[in-house]
Write a protein that binds this DNA or RNA. Structure first.
Lengths: 243, 243
DNA sequence: CGTTGGGTTGATCGGTATCAAATAGCGTGG
DNA sequence: CCACGCTATTTGATACCGATCAACCCAACG
């Protein structure tokens, strides 16, 4: 894996969502990092840890989650290549949730010190990161709406469309088909329903010809029906510079 | 309302959660602002607007919300004096949700230009604001857990405790009693349940001697039972410097 | 092969929405 | 001061969504 491949998805995203300055990106790409690989289901960060580095997803997928006392688990966000899932630890030492590898994945770890030095030299880098955390927050708010108000069919459709839009930005959607290695149980944990119920919703969507999900591959069969269910307004993803 | 009263709750929060530098706070307090008052239920910002100012809640309460196509509304966050509910517009021009006055309230509007100038002069101010948005994001994640996984009793208890902790920080809790002018319907919209169901949960909590809610006044009757229900872990609020 | 983890289906139960109606509290104007 | 109207709260009856429990299927893999 070349350094180029590691930075490309992040740069793609930063350029599209925030109109990044090329010099800032060059400076970023010059930062030293350490690659580490994780296996499916392995914890990258655990609730309570105090990491001294931020990580960039170079390849594979991760998710944030919180587990409550009775053992129920909520997935808080899904992270794809190019995401920086723990930028918040630049400011707050302790992570307040788990970060877990959804698939085997490769993460680039960048020392807080190196990042902070760069940010103090180039304020544009800090601004980009701040914007990144703002989009992250906007996604979380949309997820509150998803689990709080939408019917489970709409909920699943919305989640699928969000993932597709984000994956499309990094070139991971081909023929309305994309890989997202979530099990039905994990889809359920992201939506606040059980895996059994997720299974039934998926069956209905399949029967209605909306979409198919097979071993982590989502295939959209009827874009119109999907949109109707998802009622997706992607502005919160900030996918055009200065939107 | 003196300038002191307007800034005090924000400074209280910034000092407690992020260990703010006094010079940064002085510089902040020197910023020009315009006071505007809003009536209960009046929109401060509407989805799609492009404000040129950020607002600070000087007095009263607001909430963020999103309304989906079928008319259902989700409350995304509740804002109390000292909160900066639209800092995100410093970076992204368009608001992607509504900001509505929960009670009659007074807001101080500070021009983006003035804020950006100050941030570029004093990077510590930018850092404080970034941290503020990070806490905001952490609260949103906790709300995802709340609506996604907790039983409605636990959900209400958790929401109550979160509000109490935040209000306590700005000196608004006396004898385990505090004002938060949410109707039962609005509690429901924050939790993803109907007002009828909220009413029934409240009745049970009242009968069990946990808490009382009357016209916007919450009185905690049994702290132990409340804690047991809420299972509240307040780390996400970052209420001690360098936690 | 046997084992295992995910997926699928069925039966039943409980929690919440929904619909409806009565009650209580509050602000306004007569 | 009272009458009125509006809104919030409260309660009841019923329907339905989704959880739970249980079983079985299936493909991947050691």
């Amino acid at each position: 894996m070349t350094s180029d491949m590691i930075w490309a998805p992040l740069f793609q995203r930063l350029k599209t969502t925030t109109g990044a300055d090329d010099r800032d990106l060059e400076a970023l790409a010059a930062l030293p990092f350490t690659l580490r690989t994780f296996r499916e289901n392995q914890a990258v960060l655990r609730d309570g840890e105090q990491p001294s580095e931020c990580c960039l997803i170079a390849d594979g997928f991760c998710f944030r989650s919180k587990t409550i006392v009775d053992g129920r688990r909520q997935i808080l966000s899904i992270h794809i290549p190019g995401d920086l899932p723990n930028l918040q630890n630049l400011h707050f030492p302790t992570v307040d949730h788990d970060l877990i590898a959804l698939s085997d994945c490769t993460l680039a770890f960048i020392a807080h010190k190196a990042l902070n030095d760069l940010i103090s030299q180039r304020s544009g880098v800090g601004d980009m990161f701040w914007r990144d955390t703002l989009v992250d927050a906007a996604v979380s708010r949309e997820w509150i709406v998803n689990v709080g108000q939408r019917s489970t069919h709409n909920r699943l459709a919305h989640l699928i469309v969000e993932l597709r839009e984000r994956l499309r930005l990094i070139g991971r959607v081909i023929d309305n088909t994309f890989e997202i290695p979530l099990t039905q149980e994990q889809f359920g944990e992201a939506m606040g329903v059980t895996s059994v119920h997720t299974n039934r919703i998926l069956r209905e969507l399949r029967i209605d010809g909306v979409l198919e999900l097979q071993r982590g591959t989502v295939r959209i069969l009827n874009e119109h029906k999907l949109q109707e269910l998802a009622q997706f307004d992607g502005r919160y993803l900030q996918m055009s510079p200065s939107s």
